[in-house]
């Protein structure tokens, strides 16, 4: 399991990365922590001719407090969020989610931007940040744009990123302690990818309620009728079947449980 030959370069700033990605005949990919791309390279599932190291770019590191939101640089690691090296826009929910991403060794290198760009349907940030209504800030030569996460994932391992575009940061709205949150995932063993997950946000201050079904082999599904679901007026089995009809019996059962338990965590009710 050795990769095909590739060139490797370090990019000092966003403009140079974008230029490298945009060049004609460029066959380049940005690499940050390498925790998803590394294995793909070794398995020869990814064969870029050039890797552009973006892990140390100042623009992608650090978190900026924008008043009502925190803008996290794309190259911030899961460990930095877990350890509180960067501020948590939420009452500790981000740190708690980070703590259960894979293994600590992976968290030391894996980045929040990398996780979103890789778009694994089971990934914690893909699901948690979508449920929190976060948005990604994208940069390409001459143009920046902002995409809400619920529009960013277009398929399993597929995003709205253009070929010459990189994630610069992800903006997470601040949540106060009056907001309620529940995130529950099922893994076969500690550190594994989730087989089913669900997230619930109830934020009366901002008038936001979201119920998300994750790890459905597709981009996460935001369920309709949130209040009815949370209040128990809608059958969870039916809701899962409508949101993810393709799931087999086992996956369906696990997702119903995930939904029930995430709602219970958010509402403080019985599981």
């Amino acid at each position: 399991m050795k990769p095909v030959p590739f060139n490797f370069t370090f990019a000092p700033d966003v403009t140079s990365v974008a230029a490298l990605l945009a060049a004609p005949d460029a066959d380049a990919k940005p690499i940050a922590g390498g925790q998803s791309l590394g294995p793909m390279l070794n398995l020869r599932l990814a064969r870029p001719q050039m890797l552009v190291d973006v892990s140390r770019m100042a623009e992608l590191r650090g978190a900026r407090d924008e008043g009502d939101a925190i803008l996290y640089g794309a190259a911030i690691t899961h460990a930095e969020i877990e350890d509180g090296v960067v501020p948590d826009a939420t009452p500790g929910w981000l740190a708690a989610a980070a703590r259960h991403i894979a293994y600590r060794a992976v968290r030391n290198r894996g980045t929040i931007g990398g996780s979103l760009a890789h778009a694994d349907p089971a990934a914690d940030w893909v699901n948690v940040l979508t449920a929190l209504g976060a948005e990604v800030v994208l940069a390409r030569p001459g143009a920046n744009r902002v995409v809400p996460l619920d529009q960013f994932f277009v398929g399993p391992f597929a995003t709205a990123l253009a070929h010459d575009e990189i994630i610069v940061g992800v903006r997470v709205r601040k949540r106060s302690t009056t907001a309620r949150w529940g995130y529950w995932k099922f893994c076969l063993k500690s550190g594994d990818f989730a087989k089913a997950s669900a997230a619930v946000l109830i934020d009366p201050d901002r008038g936001e309620t979201r119920v998300l079904l994750g790890a459905i082999e597709r981009p996460p599904a935001l369920l309709p009728d949130c209040s009815a679901l949370i209040d128990g007026r809608v059958d969870l089995g039916q809701a899962v079947r409508q949101a993810a009809p393709h799931l087999d019996a086992t996956a369906h059962a696990l997702h119903v449980t995930a939904l029930r338990r995430a709602i219970a965590i958010a509402t403080g009710g019985a599981r």
């Binding site: 087989k195 019996a249 059962a253």
Partner: peptide, 22 residues
């Protein structure tokens, strides 16, 4: 004894409502 096997056994035994795929 995986979750998939156990859930299938539980479903068969009627311990949980049977789950049909859509």
């Amino acid at each position: 004894i995986t979750p998939a096997r156990l859930l299938a056994k539980l479903s068969q035994a009627g311990g949980k409502p049977a789950m049909e795929p859509a």
